[in-house]
């Protein structure tokens, strides 16, 4: 199956954010994907990215994940999972950029992901879960102003200790 590259026709945003594009992961992208998971803090659906084997990474990535490209260079992964019935319009976002990506890129990627989703579907609630051990992820979620809903404590081991998952969400006003 050929993967389609999605790309904005024209101008680059003025803020210094890159020109984003995305595609479904094809076999030729897996070298980049495996390289992401070799980073010790690439917490994309896992608390131990750098010790995952290849089959496990393929399973974590799955059909719903998109390879994010910044100025045509692989920069990270994201996936949107629907929760409940179509009419609920609840989604959970998994987003991870590689370690070298500047912090500002996270905000810019999040905005473009939300914009693409709301182009075609109603969005009522978007949830993000971040491990307590994930400093970068927590800083990102808090800087976005997402509501911090609570922490499910002591559910995961990382670096020899127990940590919880912190739940963040944003709710949009109903328009339909």
């Amino acid at each position: 199956m050929t993967s389609t590259v999605l790309r904005a026709p024209a101008s680059r945003p003025a803020t210094g954010a890159p020109a984003w594009s995305a595609r479904a992961c094809s076999d030729s992208d897996y070298d980049d994907v495996l390289a992401f998971f070799s980073e010790p803090d690439f917490f994309f659906r896992t608390a131990e990215p750098d010790t995952r084997s290849e089959w496990e990474i393929r399973k974590l990535v799955g059909a719903d994940t998109r390879l994010l490209l910044a100025d045509d260079e692989p920069a990270g992964l994201y996936a949107l999972e629907g929760f409940g019935g179509e009419h609920g319009c609840h989604y959970q976002l998994h987003l991870r950029l590689r370690a070298a990506a500047p912090n500002a890129w996270w905000h810019s990627a999040f905005e473009e992901i939300v914009r693409a989703l709301t182009w075609k579907k109603e969005l009522v609630r978007l949830a993000v879960q971040v491990g307590e051990f994930d400093g970068r992820g927590l800083a990102f979620a808090r800087s976005l102003g997402l509501t911090e809903e609570g922490t499910l404590a002591s559910v995961v081991r990382h670096g020899g200790q127990r940590y919880g998952y912190v739940f963040f969400a944003r709710i949009w006003a109903l328009t339909s």
């Binding site: 999605l6 984003w20 594009s21 995305a22 994010l68 992901i113 693409a116």
Partner: peptide, 10 residues
């Protein structure tokens, strides 16, 4: 104004 990350209709 097609969003950069929205998939095209297919």
């Amino acid at each position: 104004n097609w969003p950069v990350l929205a998939e095209p209709a297919t």
